[in-house]
Design a protein around this nucleic acid. Structure first.
Length: 84
DNA sequence: CATTTGACGCCAA
DNA sequence: TTTGGCGCCAAAT
């Protein structure tokens, strides 16, 4: 299945440790720079453990949201040494 | 099938 | 600088 959501998963899963991408960047990589909305929506409904969605942040520098609590997200990013 | 929602982004005031 | 409003996409209701 090669749908928009699958591409999003692929991109997010492809994020390496210590690397962070913004929703806009992900949307741009999947081929729809304006689908940033959908990116967040897809990750939100598909909170998957095998997908490092905590490495996807907002362009404003805010961590954004998370399905298990933003604190955890920020904590993980800090531990991984991800920089914005 | 139509409408609403959502972890957003950018621009104008 | 902060707030408000608009635009866009996919999935859920």
């Amino acid at each position: 299945m090669k749908t928009f959501s699958d591409k999003v998963y692929a991109v997010v899963k492809n994020i390496k440790r210590g690397k962070t991408l913004t929703y806009k960047q992900v949307a741009n990589l999947v081929g729809s720079p304006k689908a940033y909305r959908a990116v967040g929506n897809i990750l939100n409904k598909n909170y998957n453990q095998n997908i490092p969605c905590h490495r996807v942040t907002r362009s404003d520098g805010a961590p954004g949201g998370y399905n298990r609590g933003r604190k955890l997200k920020v904590q993980r990013l800090k531990e991984e040494g991800a920089r914005l």
